[in-house]
Write a protein that binds this DNA or RNA. Structure first.
Lengths: 212, 212
DNA sequence: ATAATAATTTATCAAATGGTCAAATTTTCC
DNA sequence: GGAAAATTTGACCATTTGATAAATTATTAT
């Protein structure tokens, strides 16, 4: 009997675990470059080197693959903000957060584009995640930042808009990679601009946040 | 004989001009929320209140609609940067640019998402526009900014990364609107946060750029 | 009014797409 | 080695989708 289609996660067997991983890796490739609707099961199956029915033996539908993928990536996605430590030095903490986000954009651009595609198109499949997990985390960390401001360790500013600005500027290097490379006249593999970006952003946000 | 399918632009007739406009307006709705591959001619035709074959009487293909739409929006898209005046006061000019971009994000979010979708997915249909028109404009305006820096009227920073940061932070409010509204607990139509955003960004970039 | 032209509809196609199923093959376990 | 379970395949199906052709209905110019 078809085990995989009953139990969504398990992967009891070695083969099941391996194949599911291979499929998710290919799905990340495909979904991140074409969005959900623009991606086909055939594309994912091809990329994973297996037939469509075979792929559908491991995941019950296109939605199933997408959902599993998003859940699988969610922790990595939120981890940089989770690491923001209220007991650390405010400026250092914010700079550290920016650095981590920028490293994510450099090392995991597909993951960034996966979420970008989804949110850009109205987040129909991850709404609950935004109103739930993300919202709680932002609530918590915005309070931390507000606390720093109240204690006069940071220049007054809206904590949530600060988070938006950090997300936007860092993710930009992953989500709009094509444009960035064209404007900076960079080759495909070149990642030298991430150091310039880190310097620029650290400078920008530090000047904006440091009390004098 | 079918006029519209021969001459791409004209719209000699009143009806032709009006219908083509209606189609482009609907296409903006659809393409901006689903991306090119995720959108169907049927969706656009429905939104425009006409049958698919009728729509294809005015545009020869899905690509044709998309290309025309992009070309039609390109000037609006680039105009805020074009207005950056090298003879103005540097800080005022940059702040003005940020304000204009933010107003665009507020008043034309669909247009923003249209381009965001396209670039996010590798810009397969607007590559030439990026390597051509956009690149030239950025080249010109980056030189203007570099000039201000050389004359010590602005704090030293990488002009291109400054442009990225301005694009990212302002467009974020259009492209990731869903997320922004969830995090800020806003209703669908509410636009009050744009004033907060303007204050925050002006403060951030001014502090980052002003010489002391 | 009427002929010519423009606009619209209906019917239709071929390809693509998400998904199913039974049979065949391979792997696992005793 | 062989039974049972797991995996893979190929053939199939119903819809969707981009697109066309032909027939029909407005419009417009004379």
């Amino acid at each position: 009997m078809n085990v995989a289609s009953h139990t969504k996660k398990p992967g009891t067997t070695r083969i099941q675990r391996e194949k599911r991983q291979r499929i998710l890796a290919s799905a990340l490739d495909v979904f991140s470059t074409h969005g959900f609707r623009g991606s086909t099961i055939d594309q994912i199956a091809d990329a994973a080197g297996m037939s469509k029915p075979n792929l559908l033996y491991y995941f019950s539908s296109k939605e199933d693959i997408h959902r599993t993928l998003i859940e699988w990536q969610m922790e990595k996605w939120l981890s940089p903000l989770k690491a923001l430590n209220e007991n650390g030095d405010p400026l250092k903490e914010v700079c550290g957060y920016i650095r981590r986000k920028l490293e994510m954009a450099r090392d995991f651009p597909k993951e960034s584009r996966l979420f970008a595609n989804e949110i850009l198109q109205g987040a129909p499949r991850i709404r609950e995640m935004l109103t739930g997990e993300l919202n709680r985390l932002v609530e918590e960390k915005a309070a931390v930042i507000q606390n720093w401001i109240d204690r006069e360790e940071l220049n007054p500013c809206d904590a949530r808009h600060l988070l938006f600005a950090i997300w936007a500027t860092t993710q930009h290097y992953a989500d709009f990679d094509v444009q960035v490379r064209i404007v900076l006249h960079l080759e495909e593999g070149d990642q030298s601009h991430f150091e310039e970006a880190a310097r620029f952003l650290e400078n920008l946000f530090c000047k904006g946040l440091k009390r004098r």
